[in-house]
Amino acid sequence: MDDTAQAAGAPRQGSQKVIYAAIAANLGIAAAKFVVAAITGSAAMVAEGIHSAVDTGNELLLLLGDRKHPFGYGKSLYFWALIVALSVFSLGGGLSIYHGIAALQAPPPLEDPLWNYVVLAVAAVFEGYSWNVSRQALNAVRKPGTSLWQAVRASKDASVFTVFIEDTAALLGIAIAAAGIALGQYFGNPYFDPAASILIGALLIGAALALGRETGHLLVGESIDRDQLAALHALFARERALDSVASLRTMQLGPDDVLLAASVQFRRGMPIDEVEQAIGRLEAAIAAEHPAIRHVYFEASALRAALH
């Protein structure tokens, strides 16, 4: 069974909604942060502007990868998600830390922080909306009793969990920036602001490492989870034409696209038409119980053994 026609269908609407929401939020926020940073000289606001600008570019990369190879080339999405993780590390984290260190050496004078707070509050609203969209997408596939982080670890849709991790980092970054500006004003100390910029950079590096870990596993070929694999073994065990199941190997090709290579032993001496019927029953059962498995291959040695 190799349902490539189904795999080449329209882009996933849920993932597209998550990406569009993130782009709309980050684009306007980045512009506002840079304008206020230029007015107030806040290093933390510069770091936040860099953060939002990088996030916007990241989501555009995810959209490019998703549209160019929506299903049949699902691993391209994982590749672009890995590029996103690298860009968060090199551009977002690196530039924020560099700017913070430079500002520590010559901290800008304290200015009226009102517009900083206004922009950060607006950013929190938009980032919160984008975060909630990605959270809902994760909740739709989250197993009962599991946390959101466990849902991220289990998710195979890089466009969703990438936006969720980025937005989580963005909300934490906003809190750090606001705290740095407020503490600087309260104590009359200009060093809190650039210190916040460095903390935001460290936060982005942490987010990049988390993204890199998740997307790296998917890119090199992650299997389906243990519960799904156990259910798959139970499905094969019900087929009366099989003597044994040596191994069932799976690979995640895309968010909803799994390859299965089955090493099984059919009963010896079965007529070819009975072997074909057994394969048809297995394919139908897999399609009904595991719709994400779109490519099923039986090892040739198992077929040859059945015919001798």
Rank of each mutant, 00 (worst) to 15 (best):
D2C: 02
L307F: 05
N139K: 14
P109N: 00
G188L: 14
L307A: 05
L260C: 05
G41P: 04
A169W: 09
P11M: 14
S96D: 05
G92A: 10
L232C: 04
L248K: 02
F71C: 07
A103I: 13
Y73K: 05
V88S: 05
Y117V: 11
D273Q: 12
D157E: 15
K156A: 14
G9V: 07
G173T: 04
V84F: 10
H308Y: 00
Y73R: 02
S87D: 12
A170Y: 07
L242M: 08
E214F: 14
S159T: 11
E111T: 14
V160N: 01
A261M: 08
G41E: 09
L242H: 01
D157V: 12
A306C: 08
R267M: 09
L259M: 11
D2A: 08
V84S: 02
G221C: 07
L95E: 03
S15A: 15
A175H: 03
I272W: 00
A25M: 11
P190K: 05
L219N: 03
A121P: 06
S42H: 07
P109W: 00
A292G: 08
G216D: 12
Y191W: 15
A278Q: 04
R67L: 15
I50D: 00
I224T: 05
G93S: 08
A5W: 15
A123Q: 04
D55E: 15
G65E: 09
D55R: 05
L209A: 10
F164Q: 01
A175I: 12
M45E: 06
